[in-house]
């Protein structure tokens, strides 16, 4: 008889996760990217105007960067490093989603090493430029853009480190990977930010 059958209570409905951290980080990442859009817009406009003056032999035109001051190899290495780090942070997210903690820790470690490498390479490049910041507008803009990028990359490294520590403490798993996803979103934003830095400064100067 049906009344004699022990009926198990249905499982509690799974709470919907609202993903606040992911959404909030996405908004913050957009704002961060817009800082660089603003920096690049000024850089491009000053450079275009300078080109016009130089090409027409008008006063006020200035030599942009001296030959050899901005070398292609370090900038391109940084570009590849950031793009590889985009894959490694994705690896971390995927590993957490699969509850594969060993892979997640490895991915976090590799990502953080790459972030530190980029910061290290950038600081080296800033010290190595030797451009006259006291009288050169292009040099001033170069240092501002590189300096700003170092700051944002440092924030990304701290964010990922924090989430890595929380992952090690067991706060993230296949059911809740929001923190790691949020850190990854900000990391992707820093990777995107570097692409125009590389193209405008390293390649086209």
């Amino acid at each position: 008889m049906a009344s004699d059958v022990a009926v198990a209570a249905p499982p509690a409905a799974e709470l919907s996760r609202n993903r606040t951290l992911v959404v909030g980080t996405a908004f913050a990442s957009v704002a961060s990217i817009m800082v660089f859009v603003g920096l690049f817009a000024v850089y491009i406009s000053v450079r275009q105007n300078n080109e016009f003056l130089v090409e027409n032999g008008l006063p006020g035109g200035t030599l942009w960067f001296p030959e050899g001051a901005v070398q292609i190899a370090p900038g391109t290495m940084m570009m590849f490093t950031t793009w590889i780090s985009a894959f490694t942070i994705s690896w971390a997210v995927q590993a957490i989603r699969n509850d594969d903690r060993r892979n997640a820790y490895a991915a976090f470690a590799v990502t953080l090493v790459m972030g530190a490498a980029v910061i290290n390479q950038m600081v080296f490049a800033v010290l190595d430029f030797g451009l006259p910041v006291d009288r050169s507008v292009p040099a001033l803009m170069l240092y501002v853009i590189y300096g700003s990028y170092i700051v944002f990359m440092a924030i990304a490294v701290v964010f990922v480190s924090l989430m890595a520590i929380r992952a090690i403490a067991g706060q993230f798993n296949s059911q809740n990977a929001d923190g790691v996803q949020a850190a990854a979103i900000f990391w992707y934003a820093t990777v995107i930010m570097y692409l125009p830095v590389w193209y405008l400064i390293t390649i086209t100067k």
């Binding site: 961060s32 817009m34 800082v35 859009v37 603003g38 001033l140």
Partner: peptide
Amino acid sequence: SVWLFSLPVLIANLIYSYA
């Protein structure tokens, strides 16, 4: 959304001036 897209550009202007 408009503030988050536009005011960081003002911050960029301020960074240049500060530097």
